[in-house]
Design a protein around this nucleic acid. Sequence first.
DNA 1: GGAGGGGATGACAGCGCTTACAAAGGGGCT
DNA 2: AGCCCCTTTGTAAGCGCTGTCATCCCCTCC
Lengths: 358, 358
Amino acid sequence: MATSDATAVIGITIRDVAREAGVSTATVSRALRGLPNVDPVTREHVKRVADRLDYVISPAASRLASGRAGSIAVITPFLARWYFSKVLHGVERILQRSDLDLLLYSTGDPSEVHRVPPHRRLRRRVDAVLVIGLPVDSPDLQELFELDLPVTLIGAHSAGVSSVSIDDVEGGRMATQHLVNLGHERIGLISGRPLPTPFFPENDRLSGYQQALSASGLVVDQQLQVPGFFTIEGGEHAMTAQLAQPKPPTAVFAMSDEMAFGALRALRRHGLQPGRDVSIVGFDGHEMADLLDLTTVCQPAEDLGALAARCLLDLLDDPSIEPQAKRLPTQLYVRGSTAIRGAAHPVSLPRHGNDAKP
Amino acid sequence: MATSDATAVIGITIRDVAREAGVSTATVSRALRGLPNVDPVTREHVKRVADRLDYVISPAASRLASGRAGSIAVITPFLARWYFSKVLHGVERILQRSDLDLLLYSTGDPSEVHRVPPHRRLRRRVDAVLVIGLPVDSPDLQELFELDLPVTLIGAHSAGVSSVSIDDVEGGRMATQHLVNLGHERIGLISGRPLPTPFFPENDRLSGYQQALSASGLVVDQQLQVPGFFTIEGGEHAMTAQLAQPKPPTAVFAMSDEMAFGALRALRRHGLQPGRDVSIVGFDGHEMADLLDLTTVCQPAEDLGALAARCLLDLLDDPSIEPQAKRLPTQLYVRGSTAIRGAAHPVSLPRHGNDAKP
DNA sequence: GGAGGGGATGACAGCGCTTACAAAGGGGCT
DNA sequence: AGCCCCTTTGTAAGCGCTGTCATCCCCTCC
């Protein structure tokens, strides 16, 4: 291969800059990368020449020579769901300022059949990995750890791995306690998957739920815990199942806003009014929660992503940093979907949620 | 630098595979990449050896030698908004099967101050570019074209550039015609930005809106066109502004579901009921539209992304393919937020005097 | 004034692939 | 039998950087 003429249309190389600036390629490399031990005058000169020639470094060459991949992978099961897109946004914002490329890998639902296992693709391709909300016991993740790359987990945590998440136990407790405080005693739960996954948000939220109930001397009833799979439809089905019980709950904590939205729809379909007939608390702080007047536990998803990205960048700078699990606070936003138990009337059957004016 | 011992911990190289398989590195390269003119037996053998050694090609080396960047950039202004995250998901799904890396670049709102202009970062770094929903007149995009890379636009179109989008004129017409058919005569519009952008969805939707009105002999009233900036809040403000008019519209077409959601909230805040008092049509097919009983023009966002990715892959395969503008169909979903004008009661005044439920 | 030190620069050998080109072998065909 | 062509394989020259090492030069200090 090879065009021996370096000035060809293909592109300006470091050699062209070196020649033009009257220095060696090594000096150009050092000057442009901000390395120490370069005369400020030389550096300025080189920079100016590079600019004038419109020189752009060849990432491939640089990577090959330096052994660094120059990019980091972001692995997420979903792209179009609230939490994941928010986190990704935060990550991107930070990474954009670094000179690392952001390689996006979506795995799809962990339960699905995989297309290409990420670790296979990641080898020699990235310097570090950011994982959004994948269960730690996922085989993919295990193989990822074996790649021996710096990893930061978002929304999950694991011993010996740096992570950024919220305090899900506290979040679950907060949501449930709110319902308890309103006088509710039969408090249902719309959880994620049927089988709990260790070290994963849903377990912690479940713990918080259980703790809040127990602390108030309430019974933790397995019948009142229905999986909603973190989707709107799932939430709707779960709520419908709750309502179908012989003794339905008077309040429900849904582990995500999207499931809570589904629950709201189920209520509407049953002619029930959120807050008055059944109280609902969500989890996330979805923009739509305000719209639907849903009480919810807000989590700073975008900040989680940004913080995780910063951690990873730091880790890349100084690999000796001990991994640590950082937490960001959550906050309860109380809205109309929760109310004192039996505040207005016992269950009645209005058609649609809209009340008359005073 | 340089460990001369290739079998070092650093990694297995093509040379190791070649030695182990008893062939030359060239043959290994050819065999592994599926190039023609390799004896099937040799190929199988090489593959087996490579597998056994757990060999992974070094992208950097491959890219440097071949001159291909091995990755494509996806540029999007937003990550966490419905349309963009859906499209991105579609793109990712297709690209995952290719051996190209997906580099994610979010520009933020085009009106914002930029961090790093994308084209600066893209040079020598990607083989092709996928642009989601950026106005064609954006300076960024212009400089992008000058990079002379294969480009595919999603949700916009431009002469000489391949693109994938919906028929926004038809979509706007469909939404508006629906309202006309229901007997509405004062039909408001919640648009995107105040100033129209050439070749951009909002202009086409606007055209569709105008066409539908004109075709039915209705007046196109500038006063009834309010920008909503494609956000919930923007939609709410816009709707509020519509209601504050001396002669408010009886129906409104919002150019996105998120703005329509905001409009719904504005209605609620004014004690008005969607469908009965004011009809609202959205645009997108957001999951939440079903929940909120919003009539909307559905667009297949994920399919748009997938199709665009396929186009770009094809273009990369065969650069001689003529750029073409592909379109995907939209579909009107009629729900409760639109109804025959004055079906229940004649139009009541927005501010006060709202009657109770039947 | 000479030795020693340190900052600035240059020379150059790779990094691990790809690919033109050359070479070798194996038929089919005349 | 000899020729030609095609398939398969090997050889080796880069791709455009980085990093080590050597060199040079200017200062400082004794």
